[in-house]
Protein backbone atom coordinates (compact mmCIF):
# COMPACT_ATOMS: atom_id res chain seq x y z
CA UNK A 1 0.00 0.00 0.00
CA UNK A 2 1.21 3.48 -0.83
CA UNK A 3 1.86 6.05 1.84
CA UNK A 4 -0.80 8.32 0.36
CA UNK A 5 -3.42 5.70 1.11
CA UNK A 6 -2.58 5.53 4.81
CA UNK A 7 -2.40 9.32 5.17
CA UNK A 8 -5.72 9.79 3.44
CA UNK A 9 -7.26 7.08 5.57
CA UNK A 10 -5.89 8.51 8.81
CA UNK A 11 -7.05 12.01 7.85
CA UNK A 12 -10.54 10.73 7.19
CA UNK A 13 -10.67 8.82 10.44
CA UNK A 14 -9.39 11.74 12.49
CA UNK A 15 -11.94 14.06 10.92
CA UNK A 16 -14.65 11.55 11.76
CA UNK A 17 -13.29 11.37 15.30
CA UNK A 18 -13.53 15.14 15.74
CA UNK A 19 -17.10 15.11 14.47
CA UNK A 20 -17.99 12.26 16.81
CA UNK A 21 -16.48 14.11 19.78
CA UNK A 22 -18.43 17.21 18.85
CA UNK A 23 -21.58 15.12 18.81
CA UNK A 24 -20.74 13.71 22.23
CA UNK A 25 -20.16 17.23 23.55
CA UNK A 26 -23.57 18.34 22.27
CA UNK A 27 -25.36 15.38 23.80
CA UNK A 28 -23.66 15.59 27.17
CA UNK A 29 -24.14 19.34 27.28
CA UNK A 30 -27.86 19.06 26.65
CA UNK A 31 -28.37 16.13 29.00
CA UNK A 32 -26.54 17.72 31.92
CA UNK A 33 -28.46 20.99 31.51
CA UNK A 34 -31.71 19.05 31.56
CA UNK A 35 -30.88 17.06 34.66
CA UNK A 36 -30.93 19.64 37.37
CA UNK A 37 -29.73 22.93 38.75
CA UNK A 38 -26.28 22.88 40.30
CA UNK A 39 -26.80 26.15 42.09
CA UNK A 40 -29.21 24.67 44.61
CA UNK A 41 -26.78 21.90 45.30
CA UNK A 42 -23.89 24.26 45.75
CA UNK A 43 -25.70 26.66 48.04
CA UNK A 44 -27.92 24.25 49.89
CA UNK A 45 -31.63 24.54 50.42
CA UNK A 46 -31.56 27.47 52.80
CA UNK A 47 -30.14 29.94 50.26
CA UNK A 48 -32.34 32.86 49.33
CA UNK A 49 -33.52 33.27 45.72
CA UNK A 50 -31.37 36.38 45.49
CA UNK A 51 -28.22 34.48 46.43
CA UNK A 52 -29.10 31.77 43.94
CA UNK A 53 -29.68 34.28 41.16
CA UNK A 54 -26.40 35.98 41.91
CA UNK A 55 -24.45 32.74 41.77
CA UNK A 56 -26.25 31.72 38.61
CA UNK A 57 -25.18 34.98 36.99
CA UNK A 58 -21.61 34.52 38.20
CA UNK A 59 -21.40 31.04 36.75
CA UNK A 60 -23.07 32.15 33.54
CA UNK A 61 -25.98 29.75 33.96
CA UNK A 62 -28.59 32.43 33.32
CA UNK A 63 -27.36 33.05 29.79
CA UNK A 64 -29.43 31.42 27.05
CA UNK A 65 -28.37 27.79 26.44
CA UNK A 66 -27.00 28.37 22.91
CA UNK A 67 -24.76 31.09 24.27
CA UNK A 68 -23.54 28.81 27.05
CA UNK A 69 -22.89 26.13 24.49
CA UNK A 70 -20.88 28.38 22.17
CA UNK A 71 -18.81 29.53 25.15
CA UNK A 72 -18.26 25.95 26.17
CA UNK A 73 -17.16 24.76 22.74
CA UNK A 74 -14.97 27.83 22.35
CA UNK A 75 -13.15 26.97 25.55
CA UNK A 76 -13.01 23.34 24.57
CA UNK A 77 -11.11 23.90 21.33
CA UNK A 78 -8.56 25.86 23.34
CA UNK A 79 -8.13 22.85 25.59
CA UNK A 80 -10.06 24.40 28.45
CA UNK A 81 -12.57 22.04 30.02
CA UNK A 82 -13.81 24.60 32.52
CA UNK A 83 -13.64 24.74 36.29
CA UNK A 84 -15.24 22.39 38.74
CA UNK A 85 -17.96 24.08 40.76
CA UNK A 86 -17.16 21.87 43.67
CA UNK A 87 -13.39 22.11 43.99
CA UNK A 88 -12.91 25.35 42.03
CA UNK A 89 -9.99 23.74 40.20
CA UNK A 90 -9.61 23.49 36.41
CA UNK A 91 -11.05 20.20 35.18
CA UNK A 92 -7.99 19.55 33.01
CA UNK A 93 -5.82 19.60 36.15
CA UNK A 94 -8.15 17.29 38.04
CA UNK A 95 -8.28 14.82 35.16
CA UNK A 96 -4.53 15.00 34.67
CA UNK A 97 -4.15 14.07 38.35
CA UNK A 98 -6.40 11.04 38.18
CA UNK A 99 -6.47 9.75 34.65
CA UNK A 100 -2.95 8.21 34.53
CA UNK A 101 -3.81 5.92 37.45
CA UNK A 102 -6.92 4.66 35.68
CA UNK A 103 -5.05 4.29 32.41
CA UNK A 104 -2.29 2.35 34.12
CA UNK A 105 -4.81 0.02 35.72
CA UNK A 106 -6.77 -0.47 32.51
CA UNK A 107 -3.61 -1.10 30.48
CA UNK A 108 -2.32 -3.63 33.00
CA UNK A 109 -5.71 -5.32 33.17
CA UNK A 110 -5.91 -5.45 29.38
CA UNK A 111 -2.38 -6.81 29.01
CA UNK A 112 -3.01 -9.56 31.57
CA UNK A 113 -6.39 -10.21 30.00
CA UNK A 114 -4.90 -10.70 26.53
CA UNK A 115 -2.13 -12.84 27.97
CA UNK A 116 -4.51 -15.35 29.45
CA UNK A 117 -7.42 -15.29 27.03
CA UNK A 118 -5.74 -15.45 23.63
CA UNK A 119 -3.31 -18.32 24.31
CA UNK A 120 -5.98 -20.25 26.16
CA UNK A 121 -8.48 -19.69 23.36
CA UNK A 122 -5.92 -20.91 20.83
CA UNK A 123 -5.09 -24.02 22.85
CA UNK A 124 -8.77 -24.75 23.56
CA UNK A 125 -9.50 -24.57 19.83
CA UNK A 126 -7.01 -27.35 19.08
CA UNK A 127 -9.33 -29.81 20.81
CA UNK A 128 -12.85 -28.49 21.21
CA UNK A 129 -14.45 -30.36 24.07
CA UNK A 130 -11.06 -31.43 25.42
CA UNK A 131 -10.05 -30.72 29.00
CA UNK A 132 -8.29 -27.42 28.27
CA UNK A 133 -11.41 -26.26 26.48
CA UNK A 134 -13.69 -27.26 29.33
CA UNK A 135 -11.51 -25.79 32.08
CA UNK A 136 -10.98 -22.52 30.22
CA UNK A 137 -14.67 -22.19 29.54
CA UNK A 138 -15.48 -22.76 33.20
CA UNK A 139 -12.97 -20.05 34.17
CA UNK A 140 -14.40 -17.67 31.56
CA UNK A 141 -17.94 -18.23 32.73
CA UNK A 142 -16.88 -17.69 36.32
CA UNK A 143 -15.15 -14.43 35.37
CA UNK A 144 -18.20 -13.22 33.48
CA UNK A 145 -20.65 -14.18 36.19
CA UNK A 146 -18.91 -12.72 39.23
CA UNK A 147 -19.20 -8.97 39.84
CA UNK A 148 -15.76 -7.40 39.51
CA UNK A 149 -15.77 -5.63 42.89
CA UNK A 150 -16.71 -8.88 44.59
CA UNK A 151 -13.94 -10.77 42.85
CA UNK A 152 -11.58 -7.96 43.90
CA UNK A 153 -12.65 -8.39 47.51
CA UNK A 154 -12.06 -12.15 47.28
CA UNK A 155 -8.57 -11.56 45.94
CA UNK A 156 -7.83 -9.10 48.75
CA UNK A 157 -9.07 -11.56 51.37
CA UNK A 158 -7.03 -14.40 49.94
CA UNK A 159 -3.80 -12.77 48.81
CA UNK A 160 -3.52 -9.69 51.01
CA UNK A 161 -4.94 -10.93 54.32
CA UNK A 162 -4.83 -14.72 54.37
CA UNK A 163 -1.60 -15.37 52.44
CA UNK A 164 0.09 -12.00 52.76
CA UNK A 165 1.48 -12.17 49.23
CA UNK A 166 0.04 -8.84 48.18
CA UNK A 167 -0.02 -5.52 50.04
CA UNK A 168 -3.22 -4.23 51.64
CA UNK A 169 -5.39 -2.34 49.14
CA UNK A 170 -4.36 1.23 49.95
CA UNK A 171 -3.72 2.56 46.46
CA UNK A 172 -0.74 2.63 44.16
CA UNK A 173 2.07 2.70 46.71
CA UNK A 174 2.81 2.12 50.41
CA UNK A 175 1.29 4.80 52.58
CA UNK A 176 3.96 7.41 53.13
CA UNK A 177 6.19 6.15 50.34
CA UNK A 178 7.34 8.93 48.08
CA UNK A 179 6.17 8.51 44.49
CA UNK A 180 8.74 8.65 41.68
CA UNK A 181 9.16 11.92 39.76
CA UNK A 182 6.01 12.41 37.72
CA UNK A 183 6.49 11.91 33.99
CA UNK A 184 3.57 9.87 32.67
CA UNK A 185 1.65 9.87 35.93
CA UNK A 186 1.62 6.08 35.89
CA UNK A 187 3.58 5.11 38.98
CA UNK A 188 4.92 1.82 37.61
CA UNK A 189 6.17 3.48 34.43
CA UNK A 190 7.56 6.53 36.22
CA UNK A 191 9.46 4.36 38.70
CA UNK A 192 10.98 2.45 35.83
CA UNK A 193 11.86 5.68 34.01
CA UNK A 194 13.54 6.98 37.17
CA UNK A 195 15.45 3.71 37.48
CA UNK A 196 13.96 3.23 40.93
CA UNK A 197 13.62 -0.55 41.02
CA UNK A 198 12.42 -0.94 44.64
CA UNK A 199 9.55 1.48 43.99
CA UNK A 200 8.86 -0.24 40.70
CA UNK A 201 8.47 -3.63 42.37
CA UNK A 202 6.39 -2.20 45.14
CA UNK A 203 4.09 -0.41 42.68
CA UNK A 204 3.82 -3.58 40.63
CA UNK A 205 2.61 -5.46 43.71
CA UNK A 206 -0.06 -2.87 44.31
CA UNK A 207 -1.08 -2.99 40.70
CA UNK A 208 -1.30 -6.79 40.56
CA UNK A 209 -4.60 -7.53 42.32
CA UNK A 210 -6.76 -4.82 40.72
CA UNK A 211 -5.28 -5.64 37.32
CA UNK A 212 -5.99 -9.35 37.80
CA UNK A 213 -9.52 -8.47 38.85
CA UNK A 214 -10.11 -6.58 35.62
CA UNK A 215 -8.36 -9.23 33.52
CA UNK A 216 -10.50 -12.04 34.89
CA UNK A 217 -13.85 -10.28 34.94
CA UNK A 218 -13.70 -8.24 31.73
CA UNK A 219 -11.80 -10.37 29.23
CA UNK A 220 -13.71 -13.69 28.97
CA UNK A 221 -15.49 -12.56 25.78
CA UNK A 222 -12.06 -12.32 24.14
CA UNK A 223 -11.39 -15.94 25.11
CA UNK A 224 -14.70 -17.11 23.67
CA UNK A 225 -14.16 -15.23 20.43
CA UNK A 226 -10.54 -16.38 20.04
CA UNK A 227 -11.69 -19.96 20.52
CA UNK A 228 -14.52 -19.82 17.98
CA UNK A 229 -12.61 -17.97 15.30
CA UNK A 230 -9.60 -20.24 15.78
CA UNK A 231 -11.83 -23.33 15.45
CA UNK A 232 -13.29 -21.90 12.25
CA UNK A 233 -9.84 -21.13 10.93
CA UNK A 234 -8.48 -24.58 11.78
CA UNK A 235 -11.37 -26.21 9.91
CA UNK A 236 -10.97 -23.97 6.89
CA UNK A 237 -9.92 -25.10 3.46
CA UNK A 238 -6.72 -23.07 3.49
CA UNK A 239 -5.51 -24.74 6.68
CA UNK A 240 -6.34 -28.18 5.29
CA UNK A 241 -4.58 -27.27 2.09
CA UNK A 242 -1.55 -25.85 3.94
CA UNK A 243 -1.24 -29.21 5.71
CA UNK A 244 -1.78 -31.09 2.47
CA UNK A 245 1.15 -29.15 0.99
CA UNK A 246 3.47 -30.29 3.73
CA UNK A 247 3.92 -26.95 5.48
CA UNK A 248 5.22 -27.43 9.04
CA UNK A 249 2.65 -27.39 11.88
CA UNK A 250 4.09 -24.12 13.15
CA UNK A 251 3.38 -22.38 9.84
CA UNK A 252 -0.09 -23.92 9.63
CA UNK A 253 -0.96 -22.72 13.14
CA UNK A 254 0.32 -19.26 12.31
CA UNK A 255 -1.88 -19.11 9.19
CA UNK A 256 -4.90 -20.00 11.34
CA UNK A 257 -4.02 -17.61 14.14
CA UNK A 258 -3.44 -14.66 11.86
CA UNK A 259 -6.76 -15.32 10.16
CA UNK A 260 -8.66 -15.45 13.43
CA UNK A 261 -7.08 -12.28 14.80
CA UNK A 262 -9.18 -9.59 13.14
CA UNK A 263 -12.43 -10.15 15.07
CA UNK A 264 -10.41 -10.70 18.25
CA UNK A 265 -8.77 -7.29 17.79
CA UNK A 266 -12.11 -5.52 17.52
CA UNK A 267 -13.39 -7.31 20.59
CA UNK A 268 -10.22 -6.35 22.49
CA UNK A 269 -10.65 -2.70 21.55
CA UNK A 270 -14.21 -2.83 22.82
CA UNK A 271 -13.09 -4.47 26.04
CA UNK A 272 -10.42 -1.85 26.59
CA UNK A 273 -12.87 0.99 26.13
CA UNK A 274 -15.13 -0.74 28.61
CA UNK A 275 -12.23 -1.17 31.07
CA UNK A 276 -11.34 2.51 31.03
CA UNK A 277 -14.92 3.54 31.63
CA UNK A 278 -15.92 0.95 34.17
CA UNK A 279 -13.21 0.85 36.78
CA UNK A 280 -15.16 2.72 39.42
CA UNK A 281 -16.06 -0.25 41.62
CA UNK A 282 -12.66 -1.86 41.32
CA UNK A 283 -11.00 1.47 42.05
CA UNK A 284 -13.15 1.87 45.16
CA UNK A 285 -12.29 -1.59 46.44
CA UNK A 286 -8.57 -1.04 45.96
CA UNK A 287 -8.55 2.68 46.96
CA UNK A 288 -7.11 3.34 43.52
CA UNK A 289 -6.69 7.09 42.97
CA UNK A 290 -8.22 7.05 39.49
CA UNK A 291 -11.06 8.59 37.57
CA UNK A 292 -13.82 6.25 38.65
CA UNK A 293 -14.89 7.86 41.90
CA UNK A 294 -14.25 11.33 40.52
CA UNK A 295 -16.65 10.91 37.63
CA UNK A 296 -19.38 9.37 39.77
CA UNK A 297 -19.13 12.12 42.38
CA UNK A 298 -19.16 14.83 39.76
CA UNK A 299 -22.38 13.44 38.37
CA UNK A 300 -23.97 13.29 41.78
CA UNK A 301 -23.04 16.94 42.35
CA UNK A 302 -24.34 18.10 38.95
CA UNK A 303 -20.84 19.42 38.45
CA UNK A 304 -21.17 19.97 34.69
CA UNK A 305 -17.62 20.70 33.70
CA UNK A 306 -16.01 17.52 35.09
CA UNK A 307 -18.82 15.33 33.76
CA UNK A 308 -18.36 16.73 30.28
CA UNK A 309 -14.60 16.37 30.57
CA UNK A 310 -14.80 12.77 31.72
CA UNK A 311 -17.26 11.74 29.04
CA UNK A 312 -15.27 13.47 26.29
CA UNK A 313 -12.08 11.82 27.43
CA UNK A 314 -13.76 8.41 27.58
CA UNK A 315 -15.16 8.88 24.09
CA UNK A 316 -11.80 10.01 22.75
CA UNK A 317 -10.18 6.88 24.18
CA UNK A 318 -12.84 4.65 22.65
CA UNK A 319 -12.34 6.29 19.27
CA UNK A 320 -8.56 6.08 19.51
CA UNK A 321 -8.48 2.44 20.53
CA UNK A 322 -10.91 1.52 17.77
CA UNK A 323 -8.78 3.38 15.27
CA UNK A 324 -5.73 1.47 16.48
CA UNK A 325 -7.56 -1.86 16.19
CA UNK A 326 -8.74 -0.95 12.69
CA UNK A 327 -5.23 0.03 11.63
CA UNK A 328 -3.83 -3.30 12.83
CA UNK A 329 -6.68 -5.17 11.12
CA UNK A 330 -5.90 -3.35 7.92
CA UNK A 331 -2.24 -4.20 8.20
CA UNK A 332 -3.14 -7.88 8.64
CA UNK A 333 -5.98 -8.35 6.19
CA UNK A 334 -5.89 -7.05 2.61
CA UNK A 335 -9.68 -7.38 2.37
CA UNK A 336 -10.19 -4.96 5.26
CA UNK A 337 -7.67 -2.63 3.64
CA UNK A 338 -9.46 -2.67 0.31
CA UNK A 339 -12.80 -2.06 1.97
CA UNK A 340 -11.43 1.36 2.86
CA UNK A 341 -10.47 2.65 -0.58
Amino acid sequence: MRRGFWLRYLGRRLLAAVLALFGVAVIVFVVTRLLGDPVELILGQRATPEQAAQLRAELGYDDPLPQQFVRYIGDLVQGDLGVSNYTQRPVTDEIADRFPATLELALAGMLLGLLWTIPLGVIAAQRPGGWVDRVSRAVAEFGLAIPNFFFGLLLILLFAYALGWAPAPVGELDIGASPPPRVTGMVVVDALLAGDLPTFWSALKYLALPAITLAVTSCPPILALTRTSMITALRSDYVRSARAFGLPPRTVRWYALKNSLVPVLTMSAMTFGFLVGNTVLVESVFSWPGMGLYSVQSMQRFDYAPVLGVVLLGSAIYILVYLLADLISMAIDPRVREGQT
Partner: peptide
Protein backbone atom coordinates in the same frame (compact mmCIF):
# COMPACT_ATOMS: atom_id res chain seq x y z
CA UNK B 1 5.85 -36.18 0.46
CA UNK B 2 2.89 -33.85 0.85
CA UNK B 3 3.18 -31.08 -1.70
CA UNK B 4 6.59 -32.37 -2.77
CA UNK B 5 5.86 -35.80 -4.25
CA UNK B 6 2.07 -35.92 -4.02
CA UNK B 7 0.12 -32.71 -4.35
CA UNK B 8 -3.49 -31.68 -4.19
CA UNK B 9 -5.73 -29.44 -6.27
CA UNK B 10 -8.88 -28.97 -4.27
CA UNK B 11 -12.38 -28.04 -5.27
CA UNK B 12 -12.69 -24.48 -4.05
CA UNK B 13 -9.43 -22.89 -5.11
CA UNK B 14 -10.09 -19.45 -3.60
CA UNK B 15 -10.95 -20.95 -0.22
CA UNK B 16 -7.96 -23.27 -0.33
CA UNK B 17 -5.57 -20.31 -0.42
CA UNK B 18 -4.65 -18.30 2.65
CA UNK B 19 -6.62 -15.04 2.23
CA UNK B 20 -3.92 -13.00 3.98
Amino acid sequence: IRGGEISLVSQNAVASLNPL
